[in-house]
């Protein structure tokens, strides 16, 4: 089974990386192209059920103080 896990900063968290990229993009395009937030993407090949991958995402891949995660089965 293939899983994708996406970890992203919670909305309330300032994301300085995203801000830096937004600034560079503004210079490149010569205009504001909108907000950018930076997260992490994991490709996982596993025969484990989705619950295990949810636990992996919850306990290891993300920190619930600052991040949200999403597990996608494909």
């Amino acid at each position: 089974m293939k899983y994708t896990v996406i970890v992203k900063p919670k909305k309330a968290i300032l994301d300085p990386q995203g801000k830096a990229i937004k600034k560079v993009a503004e210079n490149y395009f010569g205009k504001d192209i909108g907000d950018i937030r930076v997260g992490k993407y994991f490709e996982i090949e596993s025969s484990e059920p989705k619950e295990t991958i949810e636990e992996l995402a919850n306990k290891i891949l993300s920190n619930d103080v600052t991040e949200d995660y999403e597990v996608i089965e494909s």
Partner: peptide, 16 residues
């Protein structure tokens, strides 16, 4: 903090 022995988290410095 990651071990939850202390609360909170250390993020990237705001000036990167």
């Amino acid at each position: 903090t990651e071990s939850r022995l202390l609360p909170g988290v250390l993020l990237k410095n705001n000036n990167l």
